[in-house]
């Protein structure tokens, strides 16, 4: 069974960068798929990848990560201005971030305005 954790941006807004990364990574390591309102800053995304690499072991293979943000798609013109203004007001709250453990998420396909999430069967270890 796949568990989705829908997270409003307010849940991470007041945390430090490290706190945000820790929270997201802990949930991912718990085999939850996180749907986060908004996105991390590029340097936080980079640190998330770094922290993930530091924690990879036999049980945890890493994460799958995807962001959809309308600001990424519009490069010029009035629409860009509109999204820039929106960005000024909302900060990093625009868009959606999907993070899941590579143990449960096989692949996240972006196309580019929609996301397809392909999951795996999770084998649970029997307790002796």
């Amino acid at each position: 069974m796949v568990t989705f954790h829908v997270m409003g941006y307010h849940e991470i807004e007041k945390l430090s960068s490290l706190g945000r990364i820790r929270k997201l990574l802990n949930l991912a390591k718990d085999n939850k798929i996180i749907l986060l309102q908004g996105r991390l800053r590029p340097d936080e995304e980079k640190e998330l990848i770094k922290a993930t690499m530091e924690e990879i072991n036999k049980e945890f293979k890493g994460i799958e990560l995807a962001v959809i943000d309308p600001r990424d798609r519009v490069k010029d013109g009035l629409q860009k201005f509109k999204y820039d203004m929106m960005g000024l007001v909302l900060g990093m709250q625009t868009g959606i971030t999907i993070i899941g453990s590579a143990n449960v998420v096989k692949k996240i396909k972006r196309d580019p305005s929609k996301i397809e999430l392909l999951t795996k069967d999770v084998k649970k270890k029997k307790k002796k």
């Binding site: 800053r41 590029p42 340097d43 995304e45 980079k46 962001v67 972006r110 196309d111 580019p112």
Partner: peptide, 17 residues
């Protein structure tokens, strides 16, 4: 391959920043 991978976007986003 698919260029929309988040790794590509993260690398480029950091360089841009």
């Amino acid at each position: 391959t698919d260029p929309y991978s988040q790794v590509n976007i993260t690398i480029i986003g950091n360089l841009q920043a």
